[in-house]
């Protein structure tokens, strides 16, 4: 009796379940992943671990605007620790060696640029990964085909921006390991703004210790990645300024110490921008936007309590977005006073 009763309800139940399932799937699918592109998402999930846990050596090029650079890299994942060495292949001969959280840069002094600023100096390594950013909400992931890069078979994942606040990205991932071997940042007209690609690559577990040793002569600068100096947490609340608007999906990802000002970096999981707020010194900067490849710098001068401040938004975002962010910075009067005093 009970059995029959259950059985009679089964079809209805089943139908309800199917409907529910279908609806939730299509709701999710339509809102985040167009049908069939969960595969692209799976590729993306492999990307993070692959970047660190694959061992390889090779040469890659990086181009933005009219600049092209090439670098040689050896990367090893051993006993749970990332070790890598990057050697610049053109311009001055510099190198960056990283062992776990220790980074050593050897860079030729180029005179005008203070190169010790080049070193990743903050507790940034974990900052981004601790934010579980749902990339699929801001980018439409699709598997865009297959190809061969630097001798390896790759899957192409396209991440099309869902709004005009960000650029689209295209990633080429090696099929066995998921290693990123090529990437592009693309503007709204599909033009390539930034290009990264391995031209020579060997994915191998056989990377010897001396491939990871510093060999250049020059000024060495050492930093640890994980511990920043303790921040004065009370340094004017919220760093002395706030954003009234930020493109959806971008969350504060790192609060780096800037030279004299106060900066915060924001990321949506793929792209990032930094906001600098500094009292305008003797050096006057022009207002407006400037672009290098996918990177926009937007500068704006504002006055708070008759004190001039420079707001700079720098990031891999369209000029219009950078401008909107810069326009929405609100500087605390308290901060203005603090800076007058200092």
């Amino acid at each position: 009796m009970t059995f029959r009763c259950k059985r009679r309800h089964w079809p209805a139940l089943l139908l309800a379940c199917l409907l529910l399932g279908a609806m939730s799937a299509s709701a999710r699918g339509a809102a985040e992943l167009p049908a069939g592109d969960s595969l692209a998402m799976e590729w993306l999930e492999r990307l993070g671990p692959a970047l660190n846990m694959t061992s390889y050596r090779g040469v890659f090029i990086y181009a933005r605007g009219d600049q092209v650079h090439s670098m040689r890299i050896a990367h090893r994942y051993k006993n749970g620790r990332v070790e890598e060495r990057l050697v610049m292949q053109d311009g001055g001969n510099g190198e960056i060696v990283r062992k776990g959280m220790d980074v050593v840069c050897v860079l030729p002094d180029r005179g005008r640029v203070r190169l010790d600023e080049v070193i990743p100096s903050g507790p940034f390594a974990e900052a981004f990964s601790s934010q579980l950013v749902p990339v699929g909400r801001w980018y439409r992931p699709t598997l865009a085909g297959q190809d061969r890069v630097a001798g390896y078979d790759v899957a192409i994942v396209s991440l099309e921006a869902r709004d005009s606040h960000r650029y689209s990205h295209r990633l080429w991932l090696e099929k066995e390991t998921g290693l990123l071997v090529k990437s592009q940042v693309r503007g709204p007209g599909e033009e390539v703004l930034e290009h990264f690609q391995f031209t020579d690559l060997e994915i191998t577990g056989d990377i010897s210790d001396d491939e990871l040793e510093i060999r250049s002569q020059g000024r060495e600068i050492k930093r640890k990645l994980d511990h920043g100096e303790p921040r004065a947490s009370a340094v004017a609340r919220m760093n002395g300024w706030t954003l009234d608007w930020q493109p959806e999906g971008f969350v504060p990802a790192a609060a780096p110490r800037s030279g004299k000002g106060k900066a915060v970096a924001f990321s949506d999981g793929l792209a990032a921008f930094s906001v600098f707020v500094e009292p305008m010194g003797r050096l006057k900067m022009p207002s407006g936007a400037s672009r290098v490849g996918a990177t926009t710098i937007f500068l704006r001068e504002v006055s708070v309590n008759e004190r001039p401040f420079l707001i700079a938004v720098v990031g891999e975002i369209p000029p219009a977005t950078a401008r909107k962010v810069a326009d929405s910075v609100r500087i605390d009067e308290r901060l203005a006073l603090e800076w007058v005093g200092s």
């Binding site: 970047l51 990283r98 080049v118 981004f128 900066a263 700079a312």
Partner: peptide
């Protein structure tokens, strides 16, 4: 500005080589 921005998300962004570049 460019440097500091790049520095913020060189290692941190998890993009590995792209960040360094």
């Amino acid at each position: 500005f460019l440097l500091e921005h790049a520095q913020h998300n060189s290692v941190g962004a998890g993009r590995g080589s792209v960040g360094y570049a």
